[in-house]
Design a protein around this nucleic acid. Structure first.
Lengths: 161, 161
DNA sequence: ATAGGTGCAAAGCATTTGCCGCGGT
DNA sequence: ACCGCGGCAAATGCTTTGCACCTAT
């Protein structure tokens, strides 16, 4: 069946090839923030006639069409998520690289206000928190470089007030 | 005379070589957020016996020692600024790449609170606004990619409330 | 039919590193 | 004197691209 991302592609009049359909499906199904390598892995599992170059070209195309958003959580590789499943921000666990999404509607307004005070219209923004799980095993690696960001599964959770 | 950054290096017991001294001076004098290439340019102007590899090694060293902070404002290259001349955030002008610093003490608390609500201790955070100068010439390039971030001079200004 | 997409491998960029002579402490 | 530092160029790792072929529309 036609995936959500594929529908968006069609709406923008993008030519739908076999590989794009597969990548669209992978993206539609992703609940995390995969990097290109991971997308390539997942897409290849569904159809091995896809090259990583095409994945790169496709995420770029989708980003340019406002369907995807590129993220940089540190660690060298870009990670992607579908645009706008609600404004949210990210908290990255510095020990595991896991990404947790949270919303904070109030922020939107505040940030808008700050930009306005500086004489700007807010085009977009980036708010990322880097934190360490509380309590956990006290043996947290002292000088761990946050840069790792392995393929730990990401989470999405509501922010308890 | 001994620059501010050099003093910090000495405090941490870092070996002070000629090239490090020069780079320290350049960093101490910088009021903006130069990338490595720019630091190399400025350092070379003071002393041409410096290779770009050394600049890379030095900013890394300083970052590991908490003297510098690495920033990513989009545009592919890392940019640096001395740690803690007061907690502040950045607003990047998407049309010119110019960076404007602003403070917002209240934010610190709010962010801390959010992390806590999610069960984390806040290690660090990143808050960046991307905006377009209000009014300006109405002929703002429609689909300009923010990625450019040329060497436009950065600013630091207080946030009017 | 034909504009545009794809695979492959090579090219690009920013950044890191091996090697070895040199310079701080 | 000794260990770490710096220069140089080669190596890396992610991402882009040239080219020739292939495919949606």
């Amino acid at each position: 069946m036609e995936s959500r991302i594929e529908r968006l592609c069609i709406e923008r009049g993008l030519k739908m090839t076999g590989q794009r359909r597969v990548i669209a499906r992978v993206l539609s199904d992703a609940a995390d923030h995969p990097d290109v390598e991971e997308l390539y892995r997942r897409a290849s599992a569904l159809d091995d006639r896809i090259s990583i170059a095409t994945v790169y070209r496709t995420v770029r195309l989708l980003e340019e069409n406002g369907i995807l958003e590129r993220r940089d959580f540190g660690g060298g590789r870009a990670r992607y998520e579908p645009t706008e499943h609600g404004h949210h921000h990210h908290l990255i666990d510095v020990d595991t690289g896991r990404v947790i999404e949270f919303e904070d509607a109030e922020h939107e307004r505040v940030l808008q206000g700050i930009a306005a005070a500086l004489g700007f219209d807010l085009v977009s923004h980036r708010l990322e928190l880097f934190g360490r799980r509380r309590d956990a095993r006290a043996s947290a690696p002292a000088a761990a470089r946050p840069a790792s960001a392995e393929s730990a599964r990401d989470e999405q959770i509501g922010i308890p007030r």
